[in-house]
Amino acid sequence: MPWLDLLLGLTLVVTAGLALAARDLFRAVVMFIVFGLLMALAWVRLHAPDIALAEAAIGAGLTGVLLLDTLGYLRRPFGSRVDKPGKHQ
């Protein structure tokens, strides 16, 4: 399946580029999760199922959750911040 592998590799590069170039942070996080899941597929194709499992669970899943959580934290109104007032974009 060389064509599928080539397609997978190209999609990886494209999703990585989209994640880096996205202006909207939410879009960037979603692209990062997509990248992580495709990366897990790539590891399977490279006969490394152990890394694929870890990538899907930690790379795409939990890191994605942490990034989304951070995004929610960044977007919350600053009046609720306890210690110090920050800049609001």
């Binding site: 939990l62 959750v65 942490l66 959580d69 951070t70 929610g72 934290y73 919350r76 109104p77 600053f78 009046g79 609720s80 306890v82």
Partner: peptide, 20 residues
């Protein structure tokens, strides 16, 4: 704990809405 240790959202929703 890495997920739980992130600070919770607005302490007082009314105040937060006002600030927003």
């Amino acid at each position: 704990s890495l997920f739980r240790l992130t600070p919770p959202y607005a302490d007082d929703p009314d105040e937060a809405r006002e600030q927003a």
